[in-house]
Design a protein around this nucleic acid. Structure first.
Length: 279
DNA sequence: GTGGCCCTGTGA
DNA sequence: TCACAGGGCCAC
């Protein structure tokens, strides 16, 4: 579910409210999300204080004071990590983990909830060596908002494979999912099934600029909410109102009016305009 | 490359 | 009842 803009929005929302908070209790109604097992997970986190909340690709990272420790959260399709304000979803059947947090400057304890309908997401309390050895994390490609145009072009130039499949490949570039791949390719006028090696430097440069633009607009809109996604405070994003192709198969292209085509690329539904987008 | 799988909910 | 859904991994 959440891609880079959604995870960034969650990290920004959690950061001010979690920084300085100490973990008083870890309650695990269901162990689905904890590949390390409940006891290791709980033992490592109990009593520890959060120093920062960051993001890398689609992974949310909570950092702890003292002996280095990172709570790495991957929300996959339907995961949510949030601060309920009125006990919302605290005891829902899809709530798999609850943290009870304490801030020195606040007498009340604050729950932090992990909720995931489809149970694909994971939470791991990792030591630095374990974080570095986590295959998903270790192999992540560069951040699209940090990489420059030359480096971006170099990644895709002469690369085997279709451009959309490469954009979705987290080891090539981090954080892009189905929504932002389709939206970016539409705005960059590139067909999703175009072989990357056929794209000129000029068009790859445009793709880089467009990708940054789309991701930044989406972050400003606090992400896209289709059904499940909510930010750390439980608010929906607004970027779904800006979709030009995602979820619009068969509808007219906003630019030329041609019916948008749908196909499968890299196993995912792909929507594009056969007139505006070229190989 | 593609297809299936993990899992649940939703809408046609 | 069936297809499909913001992801990632594994086997062909």
């Amino acid at each position: 579910m959440p891609e880079l803009p959604e995870v960034e929005t969650i990290a920004r929302g959690l950061r001010p409210r979690l920084t300085g908070a100490r973990v008083l209790a870890v309650e695990v109604p269901g162990p689905h999300a904890l590949p390390q097992g409940v006891e290791t997970f709980r033992t490592r986190l109990l009593g520890r204080s959060i120093t920062n909340v960051t993001r890398r690709g689609k992974a949310l990272l909570l950092h702890f004071a003292g002996e280095p420790l990172t709570l790495a959260v991957h929300l996959r399709m339907t995961g949510r990590l949030f601060l309920p304000d009125n006990g919302e979803l605290l005891h829902d059947r899809h709530t798999h983990c609850r943290f009870l947090l304490h801030h020195d400057d606040c007498p009340q304890q604050q729950p932090l909830v992990y909720h995931d309908v489809r149970k694909f997401g994971t939470l791991q309390a990792l030591l630095p060596a374990e974080l570095a050895a986590w295959p998903f994390f270790a192999r992540l490609g560069p951040e699209p908002l940090e990489i420059g145009p030359e480096a971006f072009t170099a990644i895709f130039k002469n690369r085997k494979g279709r451009i959309k499949a490469l954009l979705l490949d987290q080891t090539v570039i981090a954080g892009i999912g189905n929504i932002y791949a389709d939206e970016t390719l539409f705005r960059a006028a590139i067909r999703p099934d175009a072989p990357a090696r056929d794209l000129s430097r000029n068009r790859l440069g445009r793709l880089h600029a467009t990708l940054r633009e789309v991701l930044q607009e989406a972050i400003e809109a606090c992400g896209s909410s289709i059904s499940d996604y909510r930010d750390a405070q439980g608010h929906a994003g607004a970027f779904q109102n800006c979709f030009r192709v995602y979820g619009r198969g068969g509808k007219p292209c906003v630019t030329c009016g041609t019916a948008l085509h749908t196909m499968k690329t890299a196993g995912r539904t792909t929507v594009f305009c056969p007139m505006c987008q070229r190989k």
